[in-house]
């Protein structure tokens, strides 16, 4: 067996050169692209992980915002409920006040109507009483009725004090109003009668006033003596609790 040392040396150099060539043109480029792919995959994985983390954070933020929205919604709902309740209360209060005002107005109107009705009834009653009194008066002779009232007036004058009679006699003219016209002879009779009661002859004037209904009324400068039904009715009206006003009675009369 023969060894060709030239061939051995050349083949050794050839293999070493081939190692360098393949390292430079084959293994290094292939390894570089594999490493680049791994780096790209790692980068993509990291990016995906970062995106997933960001997505999780975004999801958490959205969840928090959703919770905030829910809380905000509940708060708004609660505020709306409170506002609605307040408005309902205000409306109820307003309605109550309005109802109270309406009731008060109704009561006032009812009171006025009742008062008016009462007055009407009283007026009617007074009118009825007046009619009845007139009927009763019509049953009596007017002259005697007036004479009776004049007698009562004379009795009342007698019960006056001397100073009052003196004042009545000297103060000025005296007017005697009667419900029915007083005949002249009766006027003369009463001139004498008053002269006796008052001393000196006072200046007398007779006046016919149907508003007195029945009776007489003596009017001096400082004295008023009333013996007539109008005065009696006024006294009765003042005495009764639901007495109509004087002017109403006057109107009714």
């Amino acid at each position: 067996m023969h060894i060709d040392w030239w061939t051995l040396g050349l083949q050794t150099i050839n293999v070493l050169i081939l190692v360098w060539l393949l390292r430079h043109f084959f293994f290094q480029p292939i390894k570089a692209v594999i490493e680049a792919r791994r780096a790209a995959a790692a980068r993509i994985t990291e990016e995906a992980e970062a995106l997933r983390t960001a997505a999780k954070a975004e999801l958490a933020a959205l969840e928090a915002r959703r919770r905030d929205f829910t809380a905000e919604g509940e708060k708004i709902l609660a505020e709306a409920h409170a506002q609605a309740s307040a408005e309902r209360g205000a409306m109820l209060d307003q309605a109550r006040a309005e109802a109270g005002r309406i009731v008060a107005e109704a009561r006032e109107v009812l009171g006025r109507e009742r008062e008016a009705q009462r007055r009407t009834l009283e007026a009617q009653a007074a009118e009825l009483a007046l009619a009845m009194a007139r009927r009763l008066l019509d049953l009596l002779p007017p002259r005697q009725v007036t004479a009776a009232f004049l007698e009562g007036l004379a009795a009342e004058m007698e019960r006056l004090s001397d100073a009052a009679r003196n004042d009545l006699a000297t103060a000025g003219a005296i007017t005697i109003a009667t419900a029915t016209p007083l005949p002249s002879e009766l006027q003369a009779e009463w001139r004498d009668r008053l002269a006796q009661l008052l001393g000196a002859g006072p200046r007398l004037a007779f006046q016919h006033e149907p508003a007195l209904i029945a009776g007489v009324e003596l009017r001096g400068p400082h004295t008023l003596l009333r013996r007539n039904w109008r005065a009696d009715l006024e006294r009765l009206a003042r005495a009764l609790p639901l007495t109509p006003q004087v002017h109403d009675v006057q109107q009714l009369a």
Binding site: Q11, L18, L21, F25
Partner: peptide
């Protein structure tokens, strides 16, 4: 330098591989 067939074939293989 004597060149044998293995050396020449090896050069050819080196050329092909590289």
């Amino acid at each position: 330098v004597p060149l044998s067939m293995p050396v020449l074939v090896t050069w050819g293989l080196m050329l092909v591989l590289a």
